[in-house]
Design a binder for these strands. Structure first.
Lengths: 206, 206
DNA sequence: TATTATTGACTGACCCGAAAGTCAATAGTA
DNA sequence: TACTATTGACTTTCGGGTCAGTCAATAATA
């Protein structure tokens, strides 16, 4: 490995992330209980002892790994919302498309959701953190846009504008489909995105 | 236990289901890998040996348990569709409401979904079976209704009518919300159902 | 009807591999 | 030399799976 040549100090700075990345792959493949920390270590190119040098228990590795993999999407979405232009319809359309595409492409987010579903009971703090730092901000982001659209008279003040979750639900379906069926059952993402946005925008239109 | 008084022959007829019910509870609480067959046995009021008398491996217990818990909703939905009356809008509305309510109330279906998400990789046959016997029929049920509505000129021939999955996606969101947050984060199901159906019907209307 | 033989659901002690976690020794680095 | 990141052998616990044996229920027999 080329990284072997680096100094120990530099290695120390990188080790935790390396271990967490390795842990991610193992946890994805086998689930929390069935992954062996020894395999995680091997994948990271170290031994079990080293893992315990940085983390004091398997649970901690898992928690840190989820935290490590959760810090991507949100800033991007905010930026996307920032730079959106045109009518509120167009902006919403763009934001929805961006979100769906992200879910479809970003394996990390998807697998984090899987972890929350399968291991959430064992790690309630993780679930709460995710709610505060991910679910709520995301909902707010969309809510803001829709409220503005309603205020501008472009969207009707319908029940749906009160429940932004609805708008995100087709995205969730895409995510779930991918988690359960992978690529085994075909799914036409483009067509689905078009159909969903069409339905949503029409449902909101005045 | 009153059941102790039953004859051995009668017990044999009931044991498997008893064990599978116990297994369901344990698997729900701890996940596949972390459940001990000994605890399953204890919950069913027998010993591990008895479990192995009826099932030849832990995997089999899990598979049979999922099968055991999957046989409810579909016939009910078909019946509901059968006896639906009024305009296609009204029928669709009724069917959607029925589906969402079922998801919200039926713990078994919800947990089966959790199993598919968390253990689907380990049990691909289970996933395929579920697709054939549950997902596809459900989609067909809705598709039939919508096609009829389009043919009758009541719904427009929109992209959404091609992708029935969209209509089911708010229901999935409810399900997921419940799986991840349980009752910890409040969710107004009635309002959500109203808002979703409103959006869907308006999106489909001519 | 009373006695005995047979069956088979069920038990629980046991085996064994596996994995979490420990730690004394080592080797690279400042 | 002092320090610390890393090793890998070791301990311990735990749980899936096995199997020889038990005993209640039933069938066969007198």
């Amino acid at each position: 490995m080329s990284s072997e040549t680096k100094t120990r100090r530099r290695r120390k700075a990188e080790r935790p992330a390396e271990i967490l990345d390795a842990a991610f792959e193992e946890f994805v493949q086998h689930g929390y209980s069935a992954t062996r920390l020894e395999d995680v270590a091997a994948r990271a190119g170290v031994t079990k002892g080293t893992v315990y040098f940085y983390f004091d228990a398997k649970e901690r590795v898992f928690e840190e790994m989820v935290r490590h993999k959760s810090q991507t999407f949100l800033p991007d979405l905010a930026m996307q919302a920032e730079k959106a232009e045109g009518s509120y319809t167009e902006r919403l359309q763009a934001l929805v498309a961006y979100t769906y595409a992200h879910i479809a492409e970003n394996r990390d987010s998807r697998e984090v959701l899987r972890f929350l579903i399968s291991e959430g009971g064992r790690f309630p703090e993780l679930v709460d953190r995710h709610y505060d730092e991910f679910v709520m901000p995301m909902i707010d982001q969309f809510k803001q846009l829709i409220d503005a659209g309603v205020a501008a008279g472009e969207f009707r003040d319908a029940p749906a504008s009160e429940f932004v979750e609805i708008i995100m639900s087709p995205g969730l379906l895409v995510c779930l489909w991918s988690l359960v069926f992978g690529t085994r059952k075909h799914f036409d993402l483009d067509a689905f995105t078009r159909a969903s946005t069409d339905l949503i925008l029409r449902g909101l239109a005045k």
